[in-house]
Design a protein around this nucleic acid. Structure first.
Length: 594
RNA sequence: GGCCCAGUAGUUCAACUGGAUAGAAUAUCAGAUUUCGGCUCUGAGGGUUGGGGGUUCGAAUCCUCCCUGGGUCACCA
């Protein structure tokens, strides 16, 4: 439970308006009173004027005086234009804090028998190249949203669909066969995904050479691109793969396994995990059943050449192909099939979140629309978690030209930077080498994750690896640092948490503190000392807000230097808990010391 | 060209989805403080919210027309 002033006052005000004006209004707009005004929370009166014909000040006055007289929680009020500012009693806040303090695992709704199952798809890589910065954004977003959904009492299945088939992997395979001299991850000591990725680059380089040669012999550019022997060979490999040729399938299987092992290392490093995997080699033929279904229902139609389409022009979209004239399926068909397949695998499935870049906005619009038209009720609960590209100052990332920021490389660079910084601070002499290394990794990832999560997913990020990531200000390490500080503070206070008696009589100063709960209705962080840890409250609060769709029920409170020692420890303890909690939802670890 | 997304202090981002004088961090500047964890604290300057018009008690937010950047319009995935 958060500080639920909303519920309390909604009941009160709604009952009053009902008896006074005979109107039924179920929800009101409350917000924290701005600092420059007297009061704790503010009721917006303007929206009520639609139901009650009067002037706003008069109505505010009426409600205010009623509340002051009849609600013990309200000790005073004032009216500014259509804003009714209410001052709340110390007792109200104290009671709220006591509930809050006693609650373990604050901000989490427990899972129950009836918890809906949701699937969150993220990462979804190709198997011909290692993960890059774009995947990092994808993974961090997807994982965090999974955690948040879980915290809201859902059962969440984290999944991905791996694009393990197609011309791209055939190119890597071909290059490995032709130019590889039998290299394996074991022999070279490199990660499998990196190794396979290198061959993809080699293919491209050799392919370009062939194109240049053909052009010099008089071919047109288009012609050269289509007729280069390497490409023809790769296409032949794909045909053999589809025909189930044993040798090709074996090589494909082997190289994909290399890649998967490499990916797992990267995921582990990033701190993400999955509950299930879907492979395109299994699903690319799915979706044909749905075609029949759609044809029968009259949602799809067949053209003379045998291709199947859906007409979405009524909805302002285009006509969309679903089945080629040769009867093979396209991307959309696969996605339809995969969606149904997942429904079979998770019978209680109530919805899905697809974490996919915004270049596919249109695709998902169409996909969801088709599923709705086919009459699936769960299609209402599909969500495309769309995110913008991650750009470099030098321009776009292009994997074939090697202008990508490799995920593994980035993480180790960041850890190296964390090392430089923490060594400069020089507070870690007592830690062992492995502890230090772990800490640097935690800091590096905290910086990276927070840096990416703090910007609106829709917006594109300009990532400057030169300037890299700041460890000061509104950053992950700053939050981690605050957590560590509070932890040592509690230690120094040398008081057993169990001894804290919250029924103590609080001085007015302490009550004043708890009042700040009203400022941050959904997140409570408290911290003592003369620094300004209330900032952290704001940071987390704002961040969590931006993921509002998925998030409820975390609360932060800021404070300054309370006098009563055990109260301070209680506050501090709760702060640390909440920071750890909220950070966890962002997939960010918080160390106990640093 | 049609459709979609973005444009907010020098910079990186907010703004509770239509609410009060658009806020934080960082950078800059001024003062104070200085073994107790980023040195800390206090303060200042910094904005025509890309531009114009509209809607209403009230607009960064909604509608409209422009401008800029990006994406997307494949029998690719």
């Amino acid at each position: 439970m958060s500080i639920d002033y909303n519920q309390h006052f909604t009941d009160f005000v709604s009952r009053f308006l009902n008896s006074e004006f005979q109107v039924t209004i179920a929800s009101f707009e409350f917000q924290q009173t701005r600092k420059e005004f007297e009061g704790d929370i503010t009721l917006l009166v303007f929206p009520l004027l639609r139901y009650i014909k009067t002037n706003p000040e008069k109505l505010a006055e009426t409600i205010g005086s009623y509340l002051e007289k009849n609600d013990k929680a309200v000790v005073g009020y004032n009216v500014v234009k259509g804003f009714l500012n209410l001052s709340l009693s110390d007792a109200f806040y104290l009671k709220q804090f006591q509930t809050l303090f006693q609650q373990e695992d604050y901000g989490h709704q427990p899972q129950t028998q009836d918890s809906p199952t949701l699937m969150v798809e993220f990462s979804s890589p190709n198997t011909n190249k290692p993960l890059h910065l774009g995947h990092i954004r994808n993974n961090i977003l997807g994982y965090s949203v999974s955690k948040i959904l879980e915290a809201n009492g859902n059962r969440v299945v984290k999944t991905q669909i791996i694009n393990d088939r197609g011309i791209h992997i055939c190119k890597s395979m071909l290059a490995w066969k032709k130019f590889g001299a039998g290299e394996t991850p074991e022999l070279t000591g490199s990660k499998g995904d990196q190794l396979v990725g290198r061959y993809y680059v080699i293919f491209d380089a050799e392919y370009k050479k062939e194109i240049a040669e053909l052009i010099s012999k008089g071919s047109s550019e288009d012609q050269a691109k289509q007729e280069a022997p390497l490409l023809l060979e790769a296409q032949e490999l794909l045909r053999l793969w589809e025909a189930g040729d044993k040798e090709v399938r074996d090589l494909w299987e082997t190289m994909n396994q290399w890649v998967y092992r490499g990916f797992e290392d990267t995921y582990k490093n990033l701190g993400v995990s999955f509950d299930s995997y879907y492979y395109e080699s299994d699903t690319y033929l799915l979706g044909k059943k749905i075609i029949d279904q759609g044809l029968k229902a009259g949602v799809f139609y067949k053209k003379e050449d045998g291709s199947v389409w859906i007409d979405l022009t009524q909805e302002g979209l285009d006509e969309k192909l679903l089945l080629r004239s040769d009867g093979t399926s396209v991307y959309m068909t696969q996605d339809l099939g995969t969606a149904l397949c997942r429904l079979e695998d998770e019978p209680g499935l109530k919805g899905m979140v697809y974490t996919v870049g915004n270049e596919q906005d249109y695709h998902f619009k169409v996909l969801f629309l088709i599923l709705k038209k086919l009459g699936f009720d769960w299609a209402e609960a599909l969500y495309h978690l769309s995110y913008g590209m991650v750009d470099l100052p030098s321009g776009k990332m292009k994997s074939r030209e090697g202008t990508v920021v490799d995920a593994d490389e980035l993480m180790s660079d960041m850890a190296a930077q964390a090392k430089t910084i923490s060594e400069a601070v020089g507070k870690l002499e007592t830690l062992s080498e492995t502890e230090k290394e772990g800490l640097n990794h935690t800091l590096a990832l905290g910086a990276l994750k927070y840096f990416i999560l703090k910007v609106d997913p829709k917006k594109r990020i300009l990532f400057d690896p030169e300037a890299s990531i700041d460890f000061n200000g509104n950053t992950g390490p700053f939050i981690q640092y605050t957590h560590a500080r509070i932890k040592t503070l509690i230690q120094k206070a040398a008081m057993e948490i169990e001894d804290i008696d919250l029924n103590l009589e609080l001085a007015s100063k302490e009550c004043e503190l708890i009042k700040q709960l009203g400022r941050y209705p959904e997140v409570v962080v408290l911290a003592g000392e003369q620094y300004s840890p209330a900032l952290i409250a704001n940071y987390l609060y704002d961040l969590v807000k931006s993921y509002n769709t998925f998030y409820q029920n975390i609360t932060v409170l800021g404070s300054e230097n309370p006098k009563q020692k055990n109260f301070r420890v209680a506050l501090s303890k709760k702060v640390a808990e909440v920071i750890a909690n909220a950070s966890g939802l962002l997939g960010m670890e918080v160390p106990n010391r640093m």
